[in-house]
Design a protein around this nucleic acid. Structure first.
Lengths: 190, 190, 190, 190
DNA sequence: TCTTAAGCGAGACGGTACGTCACGTCTTGAA
DNA sequence: TTCAAGACGTGACGTACCGTCTCGCTTAAGA
């Protein structure tokens, strides 16, 4: 795999930035890829070459936003990173996701509508899910960890996040998620 | 309000049946309303006259499928209906939903993609949510009942249900939901 | 065949007018159907619904421009219409075409590039060709009338017309065509 | 001007041969330069470096096919070459073109669609046209030789040639062209 | 039973956004 | 350092499908 060409990288960046700006301006709805291309100053074909489809574009953008969390989980310091007890990691991770979701409501919403049925195929979602399932498996071996992990991630559904932060701010979301995690993994566990 | 004309009722029925058949045949993806209209043997305008939009069509279909549950909740015998302790009602309700979801995966998926951001506006969803939130509020007054109710309903996300029933059958889903409910509302509660 | 809907007719007209205007403004090259749609104030889908393709659009426009000639040939007064001797009809027809071509260079050029290999399928071209072939067949029964008719229509090739009228005006084209016709059908014939 | 490098010449040849083969295989339509490059076993950039554009490629191929005629006209033996009376040269030249066209229908068609509006700029076409115009000018000084020459070349339009040879074989085309030439330049002339 | 108008059915229509295609360019690596 | 390979940028094209609109017909209520 050769390195990405310089112009390709530049355009990739421009497209992602344009998408962000449009999300900020118009909300998640009806952001046409034509508009993205126009704002990025590239042709529409370029958008499709780079990202394959509407789905791919939003997946890439989400992956970018989530890169920091990903790094922290894989090799960062505890409690997010490896080394801390599972319960602490779980709480820290969900708290981190809550913060991310609250700051990226529009992106999350757009991502959801674009990815639709492929939600479970999205690399970022899978990573989060696998991480969660691993922790839940440790904390509650008798539970259906895969199922519980999906449900926990349901906390960051776009519409739900909008409602929660709309009345109560990010703190309401954080508290609710924390309470949920505490229920799933009571202090007695580990 | 005059009674629905005989032909109108007949067409309404034909459209719902055609939608079901297409869902069964092709899965939830890409069922165009043109196809629905064609299979129902009616014009496309009729579909929109009856159901308003793609969203409305799937909402109506879901409402139809959920009618039995609705009746049971509102006035049926315990434990689903009024009268039983909240914890029993919760478990019974979620179990009922699991059965419904497992039998209507394609419809659920189509409903999700059609309703997208309006999910929380759907009458059936709202009814389920309000019912759940009420029960959760009784069982765990300190929790964010609204939030928890949404999370619980996340169990019946189309893609998730497909995965669960795909490996483990409806029993896996039922067990997981039951376990979840038990966690949220431990026997000690009430 | 039901009558064309009122709005459809209005849009059809708007699209044709927009095409004309763009042809007049930018010449025959690179008139995108997006631009046509935008100028006509309709969606692109409408253009394609009405005219099927780029080819169909220009064919329709040409047919419109040629309608007068068509009517004159089919039922107008001599020498263009029926009744006059073939030689007179031939001369009159070619003269008429020369005038039409000179006034519609941009359209002709666009039509050519759009229709490309389908040139012989175009209804207007076919009508002209058949008319010419009929006359030639009468005037010179020994000749390959079909072939000659195509050749004569070659006089109105966009690029050629541009060159002829560019240096010599429409009169040069008219004279050359007349001379050609005289050669093909000398006065002695009929 | 340095001699063409050996590999460059080899590539040039490979590209022309690949183009011919694709023309023979798929007809004139939709031969993409990507396909040409792939079949020639070279990169697409090489095609463009050698021939400049799609237009240039087909022009070069046509020029190659027409090289024999070109040599015969410029310095070959009569009646094609210099020395014969204009009328004989005209007839011989058109007959030669008819043979060439009949054998290269696909190329001619591809050439036309590629060159489109630039038809008159093509070196081969210009050479033919100038040659014809010269002869016509001698035979019929009173005629618009430039115009007539273009018209005569219209005999070798791809679609027309296809039709003529399709029903009647190359002989029909030859006869029609000969008859045409006889009309333009009757025996009495010169 | 016949008339009539209100509602309904059918599908043509308008529009938006998507993804494709193939041309011509340009960067990168190899000779 | 020059040239080949092919990844890249581009934007027009045609398509799919949603929701609207019009027109002709059916139904049901009144005479």
């Amino acid at each position: 795999m050769a390195a990405e060409r310089a112009d390709a990288a530049r355009n990739r960046e421009a497209i992602l930035r344009a998408t962000e700006e449009l999300l900020a301006l118009h909300g998640p709805e009806r952001i046409s890829l034509d508009a993205v291309a126009a704002r990025a100053g590239v042709g529409k074909g370029t958008v499709f070459r780079r990202f394959g489809s509407r789905t791919g574009l939003f997946q890439s953008l989400l992956a970018e936003r989530a890169a920091r969390i990903r790094a922290a989980i894989d090799g960062g310091p505890p409690p997010l990173g490896p080394g801390a007890p599972p319960r602490d990691r779980l709480l820290a991770f969900l708290d981190e996701l809550a913060g991310l979701a609250a700051k990226n409501i529009a992106l999350i919403a757009a991502h959801e509508q674009a990815c639709a049925a492929d939600k479970h195929q999205d690399p970022t979602y899978r990573r989060w899910h696998d991480h969660l399932a691993g922790l839940v498996g440790q904390l509650r071996p008798e539970a259906d960890a895969e199922f519980v992990a999906h449900l926990l991630l349901g906390s960051f559904d776009g519409e739900l996040v909008r409602r929660m932060t709309g009345s109560g701010g990010v703190d309401r979301l954080r508290a609710a998620v924390r309470d949920l995690a505490t229920t799933v993994a009571p202090e007695s566990a580990r």
